[in-house]
Write a protein that binds this DNA or RNA. Structure first.
Lengths: 216, 216
DNA sequence: CGGTATATATACCCCTGAGTAACCTGACGC
DNA sequence: GCGTCAGGTTACTCAGGGGTATATATACCG
């Protein structure tokens, strides 16, 4: 038994911040496992190793708890992607690094992704709004990339009009591929990211002509 | 008051098939509105204009009811897309007509789409499996299209390897764009379908070069 | 060493909603 | 007319689980 485990077992009284983290971690796990409604606060408390009134005392109601899970995981995801992007390189390389960061996050935090993507949208307006905001954020980032690249080549209005829709499609494709990944786990984040680059940067037409996109 | 309305009001006793349809319609509406768990059988019975025991007598438990909703709507969607595709034209045109049929269906059956896409996946394995099967069906159709087009141009193994992933991404993009549409309703199915064609058939790179895909 | 605030647990309340028992009623065959 | 069966309802049971009142233990401060 390591010293830290001894520590954890002996000193039962822990500072609030630690307990809150434990509870949120447990909540994400449980919500990912069952979904919001079937998940019981009893199970959360059990997984967290803490009694139920603690949860209510620290994090509030079940809705509050869920909301804080979503917010925390959304921020983590944003942070992971944001730090993965190098804003000083070409548009396609920015997309590439962003995608790799995204799939890297999903690989490391499956439960977070499940809660964000599959559960939060289904529960109610309030929670869906959080995820929609996250998605809008992603779409906006991609839109900027596409529009600036398009207008750099002199396609002002055309790019403005369809840029957001195209970006929504790309972001959706990335999310869908993350889900699909759960059924095909023997692939690396890089492979997924490169498929998306090939599909959306080059398109089927170029692909069937034998063209392939690769990082420069 | 028309005669049929009189009919509907007076003759309270209706054949089983009619009631079952009323109940399923109501269930889809209610499940789309609240999601599976918060939806109550009482509300379904109220919307259906039928008392609760009828539902249990005709369609079984809440789970049974939900499952039958999913199955019915999934079959409707498949049918709508399948009949929308002309298998005798070029690959890109098949994709184009299929996408238009898909968005046409979503436009006409918003509640069906919500239940299938946002709710069914979140409730549990059993239901997710139904939707996954539906999605796999779609992915398979696209994969065939892509692989046959790719191998026609002599790209056998490469297309085989990544074809399914690329198709999953395309199908996911189509689904995501359908969701995005709910927030931007003033667009036609054709516009959405053409964005997807431009993005996935041509790709960003061709687009920013000024190329555009259009139906032949 | 008391006293107080904080950390934590036990045991309970009570509402919501799935599922059902028991009962009604009109139509149709004989 | 009258049994009988499908169509239909009202009014109930009962478990699960969100949320809390109450009690207890431990650290820290003077």
């Amino acid at each position: 038994m390591t010293e830290s485990e001894q520590q954890a077992e002996k000193s039962k009284r822990l500072p609030r911040a630690v307990r809150e983290k434990q509870i949120l971690d447990a909540a994400v796990t449980v919500f990912a496992r069952h979904g919001y409604h079937p998940a019981s606060m009893d199970e959360v408390s059990e997984v967290a190793g803490v009694s139920k009134p603690m949860i209510y005392s620290y994090l509030g109601s079940k809705e509050d708890l869920f909301l804080q899970c979503i917010r925390r995981e959304a921020n983590r995801l944003i942070e992971a992607v944001r730090t993965g992007i190098d804003v000083d390189v070409a548009a396609d390389m920015q997309l590439w690094t962003g995608l790799r960061a995204f799939y890297g996050f999903v690989a490391e935090h499956r439960a977070s992704w499940t809660v964000l993507h599959q559960q939060a949208l289904a529960v109610g307006e309030k929670f869906a709004a959080e995820v929609t905001a996250l998605r809008s954020h992603a779409i906006e980032m991609v839109t900027k990339l596409v529009v600036s690249e398009g207008s750099r080549k002199g396609l002002g209005e055309q790019a403005e009009f369809s840029g957001e829709g195209l970006s929504a499609a790309l972001v959706g494709a990335a999310e869908a591929l993350a889900d699909w990944w759960l059924d095909h786990p023997d692939l690396s984040p890089g492979v997924l990211a490169s498929w998306l680059m090939n599909l959306t940067w080059l398109g089927f037409n170029d692909l069937v002509q034998g063209q392939v996109w690769r990082p420069s």
